[in-house]
Amino acid sequence: MATATPMPVIPSASRTLGRDFLGLALIALVGLAGYWLFPDNLAFLTRVISVALLVLSLDLIVGYCGIASLGQGALYGAGAYAAGIACVHGITDPGLLILIGAAAGAVMGLLMGAIMLRAHGLPQLVLSIAIVQLLHEAANKASSITGGSDGLSGMSPAPLFGLFEFDLWGRSAYLFGLGLLLIVFAVLRFVTRSPFGMVCRGLKEDPLRISALGIYAFPVLLKMFVISGAVAGMGGALAAIATQVVGLDSVSFEISANALVMLVLGGIGHLYGALIGTVIFMALEHIVAAINPFHWMTLVGAVLIAIVLFAPRGLSGTLDELARLLTRERWRAGR
């Protein structure tokens, strides 16, 4: 004990905060670069942001709490339909629509969490699929409210800040989405670093241990479901505002499964990983589908298999590992 084992220095709180600002600045820069470099693809890029919010929300419960879910589309769809229905009924302020989406997602998160947390492991996964399928079917049947399989249309969001119309080019929607993503990302960094986020990570490591410390797992996990629902709901609301249509695909098993694939690709338990996974998956899908509309899924599948086999911690996990190795080498060289 007298001789301390030397080891790499853990960053201080101020350095961590500095890195957070740097990360947010980087996201903003990449986002703005996308705005200038791909002015004809802003609708697609807005869709990427909307799905990124969904994948971030999934990371909260899969990556930080260790709960497997293939039903995150239920939360995303709840937000999309709530914002869409509100807009059709005269609430057109985009900020308010996002809040309505967040509230709907949060309520759905509460319900979904209350059901899913009764089970563990595979039954939990099955419950998540059942919930999204039920909601999909409910949205299909309630066609007088949701538009059914034709989708909900007739939305006309008010101009952003009363000035910027949500036009066909999607400029306002994209910048609005980018701003929303930055705010949500900053909040989630805070949440996941907070004592609450730390308890969630502890629950993921070993729920029994946390329980022996006098912490009740259920309310903690339920709270995370609500936060996750709010984030997914905002993603759904953004999609509704940007496309002015809400279809059944927004509350589907497919979007839920894709979100999980994007998360695995980017790296589970890293908020940056959720963003990286979403951007790469959707860009790959977009480009490959344009090149070969018939066999693009095969190529996307092959890339995913390669990543899972050779980078099992996802792209961000692999980058982290590389950075750690480099730091260790530098530290050794400096001794």
């Binding site: 853990i10 004592p195 730390m198 308890v199 990570r201 502890g202 490591e205 070993d206 241990r209 946390i210 410390l213 006098g214 912490i215």
Partner: peptide, 16 residues
């Protein structure tokens, strides 16, 4: 102990 958490975070978990 939670090996993925820092010492301080581990201690926080015990604060009740």
């Amino acid at each position: 102990i939670f090996k993925g958490l820092t010492v301080e975070e581990n201690l926080f978990a015990g604060l009740k």
